[in-house]
């Protein structure tokens, strides 16, 4: 599993992020101090860094400029909603930024996107006898290929990446169809039903009233 380094001075936020990430199985390390963080990033081997902007010692931008040559993708965590800060963050080499406060699943989705882009995420996903080859865009169940439409494929991947996590229809819509999609949540329901039927996931891909869906492990 990819290892993620959390640089955040607020203890509770750091704890919350760690709990969120370990829920889907990422390895996490935390650090509350800027200078110490630079040291540990340069010495360690991380796949992704979550970097708070306002930090004691060194701020996020300064840390980023010091660890650039390491080539580790960085996502900024910021309480500032200024567009100016966004541009500064992305221009200085961050992959993405996420504005506090954020939802659990949104954080996971952003991380997934960045890991996929930098090629550090999982190439294969498996769940029971279902296997997904992300590179070949192939789904097999019990060794036999299952034909899925591209959207159904994305829906399945999203559920398997967020195993045991309740996913709201809005979140699924945003992750698979994109933020700009203005379709109805019925579209989501239809695709989920298709995925459930084609892969025999009845009783596993469950509907949670007033919330959304969850793919549950054994």
């Amino acid at each position: 599993m990819p290892s993620i380094f959390i640089v955040e001075d607020d203890e509770n936020i750091a704890k919350m992020i760690e709990a969120t990430l370990s829920m889907v199985g990422y390895d996490c390390e935390k650090c509350p101090d800027g200078k110490e963080a630079v040291q540990r990033i340069l010495e360690g081997r991380f796949d992704l860094i979550l970097l708070d902007v306002m930090l004691p010692g060194l701020d996020g931008f300064e840390i980023l400029s010091k660890i650039k040559m390491k080539g580790v993708p960085v996502i900024f965590l910021t309480a500032l909603q200024d567009v100016g800060d966004k541009v500064k963050g992305l221009r200085s080499g961050a992959e993405d930024y996420i504005v506090k406060p954020f939802e659990t699943v949104e954080l996971l989705a952003r991380i997934e996107v960045v890991l996929r882009r930098t090629g550090k995420n999982r190439k294969k996903l498996s769940y029971l006898d279902i296997e997904i080859d992300l590179e070949k865009h192939l789904v097999t169940k019990g060794g036999h290929a299952v034909a899925l439409t591209p959207k159904e494929f994305d829906v399945l991947v999203f559920f398997m990446q967020n195993l045991d996590i309740a996913v709201t229809r809005e979140r699924l819509l945003a992750a698979v169809w994109g933020y700009e999609f203005e379709g109805e949540s019925r579209t989501v329901d239809i695709h989920v039903q298709q995925v459930r039927r084609k892969l025999g996931l009845k009783g596993r891909l469950v509907t949670i009233p007033k919330l959304g869906y969850r793919l549950e492990s054994l």
């Binding site: 607020d10 509770n12 936020i13 704890k15 919350m16 992020i17 709990a19 969120t20 829920m23 309480a79 506090k100 406060p101 954020f102 939802e103 659990t104 699943v105 045991d164 996590i165 309740a166 996913v167 919330l211 969850r214 549950e216």
Partner: peptide
């Protein structure tokens, strides 16, 4: 504080 509150509350909500 809002980030922590929202994050932990969301964890309690979505975690199986």
């Amino acid at each position: 504080p809002l980030t922590s509150i929202l994050g932990f509350a969301d964890l309690l909500r979505v975690k199986r």
